[in-house]
């Protein structure tokens, strides 16, 4: 009899919980290399939110080139949060569709970037061409693989990192930097439309001596394809890549998800969120996680887009817009 009573109570509790538990759906529109990161993180956040509020959160993911994803959101893809490759793309959502305020980047700590990354070189095992620094990329016999900066966010970081190096080397002479970039892209045989496409070209098609890649992508490639095939070379100077995150206010408000969307992004800064970022080869912001994962990141001098280029708006206009420097270096 007792056991029945217990069962009854248990069942009752289950019902009570079930009646309360809401099923919340979020859509996170992200760029290409974050698939594995958010797969881990979404599960962790669902656990956290369930424990805190009792509600179930299911986060749906959409991945693609950063620019393309931003454009989809502008055209009406109902993203509660966006986690893109660069601030310029979220700026575009703020400017063109007015779905979030222009000062969105000030709303979360660290310029709304809970994790950072940088650009490194992935080379074939043993580094047969002896590639150490950006200078080695413009040598005549070196074949470089990088995606198209017009369509890929990661490729823009690659390009800007090379430019920052050239400015540094030639004493801030723009003409010389341009010549350096021109020689660099002469060594590129394939411009894939996205970062993942370039990795495939380098790894599967065995094209090229060096792949310019996100640090996390390079580590992931080694994890996926074996440590016996590739080495990571971190150049002495590279760029601080800050992939930002933001709640898309208007969409979240309309769908009634503002609170959970906000919590979703804030939890990225928590110990668990930072740990997941580190585990997926992103450089965590928190000192604790940074110390824990320090061993997997080589020391590198990092410059920022704001310091060298005066912000993304200027960088985009000067380099990647129609008729910008990137277009000019391909003119005969």
């Amino acid at each position: 009899m007792k056991i029945f009573l217990k069962l009854f109570v248990l069942l009752g509790c289950a019902f009570a919980v079930a009646a309360h538990a809401k099923e919340i759906k979020l859509l996170n529109v992200s760029y290409d290399p974050t698939r594995e990161l958010y797969q881990d993180y979404n599960a962790a956040f669902a656990r956290y939110w369930k424990a805190k509020t009792g509600d179930n959160v299911v986060v749906a993911q959409s991945h693609g080139g950063s620019g393309k994803q931003a454009q989809s959101v502008i055209n009406g893809l109902e993203a509660d949060v966006v986690t893109l490759a660069l601030a310029y793309d979220i700026d575009a959502i703020a400017q063109q569709a007015k779905l979030l305020p222009a000062d969105w980047q000030k709303r979360l700590p660290n310029n709304s970037t809970p994790y950072t990354s940088t650009i490194v070189f992935l080379v074939r095992k043993g580094n047969p061409k002896g590639i150490k620094d950006w200078d080695d990329l413009v040598k005549l016999n070196v074949v470089v693989v990088t995606p198209n900066p017009k369509t890929s966010g990661g490729a823009r970081w690659n390009y800007l990192a090379a430019w920052a190096y050239a400015l540094d080397k030639y004493g801030h002479d723009d003409a010389k930097a341009r010549d350096f970039i021109k020689r660099l892209y002469k060594n590129v045989p394939v411009l894939d439309s996205g970062a993942r496409g370039s990795t495939t070209t380098f790894v599967e098609r065995e094209i090229g001596d060096v792949l310019l890649a996100w640090e996390n992508e390079a580590h992931l490639a080694i994890k996926q394809f074996g440590v016996d095939k590739f080495d990571i070379v971190t150049p002495p100077l590279s760029i601080l890549a800050e992939p930002p995150v933001a709640v898309v206010d208007k969409v979240a408000k309309k769908r009634g998800t503002t609170e959970v969307a906000q919590a979703y992004l804030e939890y990225l800064y928590s110990d668990e969120g930072q740990d997941i970022a580190g585990r997926n080869f992103y450089r965590p912001r928190s000192e604790k996680a940074a110390a824990k994962y320090a061993i997997q990141f080589s020391p590198v001098k990092l410059v920022t887009v704001d310091e060298v280029f005066g912000g993304w708006q200027k960088a985009q206009k000067a380099h990647f817009a129609d008729g910008g420097v990137f277009d000019q270096i391909f003119q005969p």
């Binding site: 989809s72 502008i74 055209n75 009406g76």
Partner: peptide
């Protein structure tokens, strides 16, 4: 959303694209 019929569809909460 930025298209010809976009604003009207948005108002009536009709989703076609995406």
């Amino acid at each position: 959303a930025q298209g010809l019929l976009g604003p009207w569809l948005l108002e009536h909460n009709i989703k076609i694209i995406f």
